[in-house]
Design a protein around this nucleic acid. Structure first.
Length: 755
DNA sequence: TTACTAAGACTTTTT
DNA sequence: GTCTTAGTAA
């Protein structure tokens, strides 16, 4: 297995030091190195499968790793510690729930659940929700946890921050009372468990001889500390990552961990994988040149022996709609050449851009798939069923209680719930236990609801997991509710799918190293840590599975379709042909990113990621005007395009020379902040100075010029600020005094020239 | 209690 | 343009 590697890959795989940092460029065989190293370590007898821990960020990556490993070696991967940070921490906490101070069946809150819990807290604790919006509080708490901070130890410098810390404290108390943990808490609890409990820590430090980390540039401070603690002084730490592909700083990832690890382990063992097996030369040259503009890189240059290939094709269109139309034509051409649709990806910076593109593809009847969006376990009907199931598992789960107490409606209104909240708080119990204290009709309805959940609980003791799920769907009234709803058919289908998911889950023999489904005997063999474990109930295991693996993020597979996704979602993927759309100042780099520290560099890395997705052909497009937030905005091409060498590029529309005079803006009468490049930092309404030096366009006997006044039957009077195209295809951008900015086809719109 | 309307937001996102 | 949320009327 080693013989198929290039020299650098081989060095990495067989590295014998205590520490190695593999700087793996895009398309350089990162996963191959990681999995081959695992296989090599096991095969050469340096470690048993149980002495190995491999951690990734996504379930997808973990599955891929496991699949490749078992493909190379005939080993039983069950019980091996290969998983996501959250999955492994969950496993750790399940095994040692008592030492971690958690109830045995603790449940996991996803981000949505967490936000709901915080909103509820803000209400019950009478916190000013204008000063402390739930979203801000959530961000504060998660950021604190990701730095490993608890309320007691946090620095406070003003009253506002003090209050935030107090809310963090209250939130922790609420979670503890309800027996739930959020995502960040999984990591922090696991870290605290290891750092405080020497017995547990030493056990795992002894056990894991080799720790392997994927996408190391995406680790946050806490994850890094967790790794260091687990590695102790004896284990080998093998980290693979690419600082140039760090695009998640906004959610706490700290690229600095790469440099820090090198410093902390003082081994200086960096291995660079720079040979790229994915893209042609022009694509790589463009990517290399672009990323050169970033400072503080560890340094790396991709190369290939595949030749230059096609140049990058860049096009500038007048509007986002024309951009999409061009996209459709180009895609048609590619397909005519014999390309398959799924080899073509259309990437964009923000989700809002997909609408126009989808519309154009739809009109042209080109099948497409949009990635991103709601995942299976995040759908509201699924979350409703899960909330009932969580209540069955733990009546004290107030978040779930509030979610379904009146869904489907059963005459329990806001007033009744307010009474219940007050009563429960006074008694000091959870909502379900406080229903007796609510008088009147509301109280009766509440009592009936709690009885309903209790009845589900007794059924749970006698039937299998899928049977229970089916039962809950029926007696909760959810089934009936969606049967009556006009658009309920798909939701009903999803409910059936949930029963299937439960069936599949209960057939699995183990979950996170623990017995799952029908708790099988004997328990998972050969995992030495089984001695710490008590079997989790199948229901609790299923619920935790649902929180941790929200399901596929992709549209239904099957049909051969164009792939539409954000650049973030494209990381790790590759396509024969890639279109990067909307490459304009203000959008990409996004204007909001410029204010953030290191924001521009992260945007540039994002562009780097986008470029390196392409194997054969790369198209970049931009539009001079685009509908965004219901307004037309004008912008100039992204500075990133000026950072790519002309030698790699073929401009499909002429490259406009300089932008120094151009401005891009939303509304007149303001002055615009400038970035260090002397460019406007934000987009806006005042039309920018026309760029096309066109002397005018002749259509239907009329001569249109930039700056000319025109009158439209519907929009009124306005001024032409830009012209494009020729003859009947000519388009004009016009700012109407009352109707705002419009792009009109001169051959169609009836315009009257005025003074 | 529900259903409708108005107002405001709105970069990227896995677990 | 589209979604979520808060407020109000039926």
């Amino acid at each position: 297995m080693i013989s198929q590697l290039n020299p650098e890959q081989r060095t990495a795989v067989t590295s014998s030091g205590q520490y190695a940092l593999v700087l793996a460029g895009a398309g350089s065989g990162k996963t191959k190195v990681l999995t081959t190293r695992m296989a090599w370590l096991i095969q050469t007898g340096q470690v048993s499968p149980y002495g190995l821990l491999a951690v990734t960020f996504t379930n997808k990556a973990a599955k891929e790793m496991l699949a490749r490993l078992t493909g190379m070696l005939p080993i039983d991967a069950r019980g091996m510690w290969i998983g996501t940070f959250h999955g492994l921490c969950n496993r750790l906490l399940r095994a040692h729930y008592r030492d971690a101070g958690l109830p045995q069946g603790f449940q996991i809150l996803d981000s949505t659940d967490q936000l709901a819990a915080i909103k509820r807290l803000i209400k019950t604790a009478n916190i000013n929700d204008e000063k402390f919006p739930a979203k801000d509080v959530q961000r504060f708490i998660n950021a604190a946890k990701e730095k490993g901070e608890r309320p007691e130890t946090m620095e406070v410098w003003d009253a506002h921050r003090q209050r935030l810390v107090d809310i963090y404290q209250l939130y922790q108390e609420q979670c503890q009372r309800e027996g739930v943990v959020d995502f960040a808490e999984l990591l922090l609890r696991a870290y605290e468990l290891l750092s405080r409990n020497a017995l547990v820590r030493e056990h795992y430090q002894r056990r894991f001889k080799h720790i392997l980390v994927d996408e190391f540039q995406d680790t946050n401070d806490l994850q890094y500390k967790w790794l260091c603690l687990l590695a102790g002084s004896g284990a080998s730490l093998f980290a693979v990552g690419d600082d140039d592909q760090s695009i998640y700083a906004f959610r706490g990832a700290n690229v600095g961990n790469m440099a820090a690890s090198e410093r902390d382990y003082a081994k200086g063992n960096i291995i660079r994988l720079e040979q790229n097996y994915r893209s042609y030369g022009n694509i790589l040259n463009a990517a290399n040149a672009l990323i050169e503009h970033n400072s503080e890189r560890l340094g790396k240059n991709l190369w290939t022996d595949r030749g230059e290939g096609e140049p990058l094709r860049i096009i500038e269109q007048a509007t986002d709609q024309l951009e999409s139309q061009w996209l459709v034509e180009e895609i048609k051409a590619l397909i005519n050449e014999g390309g398959s649709r799924s080899d073509i990806a259309v990437l964009y910076r923000s989700n809002a851009q997909s609408r126009t593109i989808e519309h154009a593809l739809f009109s042209a009847r080109i099948p497409y798939k949009v990635y991103g969006g709601l995942r299976f376990f995040e759908r509201q009907e699924i979350k409703h069923v899960l909330a009932y199931l969580r209540l069955v598992s733990n009546l004290g789960d107030d978040t779930s209680f509030m979610r379904v107490v009146n869904f489907p409606t059963r005459g329990i209104g806001a007033r009744t719930l307010e009474n219940l909240t007050d009563a429960s708080r006074e008694i000091g119990c959870s909502l379900a236990y406080g229903v007796g204290a609510v008088p009147g009709k509301g109280g009766t309805n509440l009592a009936q609801f709690v009885q309903l959940v209790k009845d589900m609980g007794s059924v749970a003791e006698t039937v299998s997991l899928p049977e229970l799920v089916q039962h809950v769907i029926e007696v909760s009234g959810l089934k009936q509710h969606y049967e009556q709803e006009r658009e309920g058919a798909e939701r009903l289908e999803n409910l059936n799918e949930l029963v299937n998911a439960a069936t599949v889950f209960s057939l699995e023999e183990n979950y996170e190293g623990m017995p799952a489904g029908k708790a099988v005997e004997p328990p998972v063999q050969a995992d030495p840590d089984i001695m710490f474990q008590e079997a989790m109930s199948p229901l609790a295991a299923f619920l935790s599975h649902a929180s941790l693996e929200a399901g596929d993020n992709q549209a239904k597979s099957g049909e051969d379709a164009i792939q539409l996704m954000t650049i973030h979602a494209a990381k790790g993927l590759e396509f024969k042909a890639v279109f990067i759309t909307g490459v304009e100042e203000g959008l990409f780099p996004h204007e909001n990113s410029l204010a953030a520290d290191g924001g521009l560099e992260e945007e540039r890395r994002l562009m780097y990621v986008a470029i390196t997705r392409a194997k054969e052909r790369l198209y970049i497009s931009l539009a001079q005007s685009r509908m965004l937030h219901g307004q037309t905005r004008y912008s100039i091409r992204s500075r990133f395009l000026d950072e790519i060498p002309e030698a790699c590029i073929k401009w499909l529309t002429p490259k406009v020379a300089a932008y120094s005079q151009a401005s891009s803006s939303w509304s007149s009468g303001k002055s615009y902040p400038r970035d260090p490049y002397g460019r406007p930092e934000t987009g806006s309404i005042a039309p920018r100075a026309p760029r096309t030096t066109s002397s005018g366009v002749q259509v239907g006997g009329q001569q249109f010029r930039i700056g000319q006044g025109v009158r439209h039957g519907k929009f009124g009077d306005g001024t032409i600020i830009n012209l494009s195209g020729q003859g009947n295809d000519a388009q004009a951008q016009i700012i109407f005094q009352n109707a705002g900015a419009k792009t009109l086809a001169l051959g169609i719109a009836r315009l009257e020239i005025i003074a």
